[in-house]
Design a protein around this nucleic acid. Structure first.
Lengths: 150, 150
DNA sequence: ATTATTGCAAATTTTTTGCAGGACC
DNA sequence: GGTCCTGCAAAAAATTTGCAATAAT
């Protein structure tokens, strides 16, 4: 945990940004909720516990900064809200998501799975892939088995 | 063009919705701009040419209805706006997109490409895939070649 | 000192809702 | 007559901006 904060601090410093207390509090919330997919508002409320004087605008500004530095990714699951997701350590590509249409759970997939597809895109479309967003919508394992027993 | 309107009309009637003049005007705009990825506001402005008395709220309501019936798909490329994209005729899955980070052009990919990946998701995660969103971010063919000549 | 960063309030942007009036069986 | 649909205006939700005050180097 602490070493991840250190790493992020270095990434900021490398671009001459500072890890201010507000930014650190925000990063800590993101680390502590790595499994979740929090909105700016969600994050704001959680950060307030650590740093009650923080403003919502600062949270937005911090999230934007972290996005630019590719420390987090902004993602949208179709409700009107942007959500923010920490990149996995050392990952160059954004991970994938399985959104259950029944219970709303979001599962993460770290495996690449797109190597072949990206090769085709580069070969047949001449498009140089830098990043991707892949989300599957469907029914998760849990909902499937509870449906069956109905 | 006309037969596609007819088809959509039938799809609406099948769920006992009507293809009102406002809805038809909206669908026509979508058909005429199939290559583009218009926002609700964009669509509103274009529909006003055909049906000047239409209100923005009606456009939103129509787009929502068409989304529910899977005639169009709502998509978000990371700017703050939702965009709407007609499904290709007979397509069961949403098509993919290549977004150029340099010129902003959005290219469409109709080929499935995800069959293998979806099989893995179903097999290894027990997740029943119903639909997906796949967007690649990178540099398009055009920008790559003009970069090279610099 | 200079520059980056913050909190607050106000402004903007995008989308949704309430409701009275019309259209359509 | 009842239901679906519409336009308008107002409201709500999400995000951004301006600016004066503060913190860091």
């Amino acid at each position: 945990m602490e070493h991840r904060i250190e790493r992020i601090k270095k990434q900021l410093h490398a671009q001459s940004y500072k890890l201010t207390p507000q930014r650190e509090a925000t990063v800590r919330v993101l680390l502590e909720h790595e499994e979740d997919h929090l909105s700016a508002e969600d994050i704001y409320l959680l950060v307030k516990d650590k740093a009650p004087e923080i403003g919502l605008a600062t949270v937005y500004r911090t999230l934007e900064l972290l996005s630019e530095l590719k420390i987090i990714d902004k993602i949208n699951f179709g409700d009107g809200v942007s959500r923010y997701d920490l990149r996995k350590e050392g990952a160059t590509h954004f991970h994938h998501h399985l959104v259950c249409m029944e219970c709303g759970t979001v599962e993460e997939i770290v495996e690449d799975l797109l190597e072949d597809v990206e090769a085709i895109i580069e070969r047949d479309w001449g498009f140089e892939v830098k990043d991707h967003r892949l989300t599957f919508h469907g029914i998760c394992r849990n909902c499937r088995s509870s449906n069956q027993s109905k």
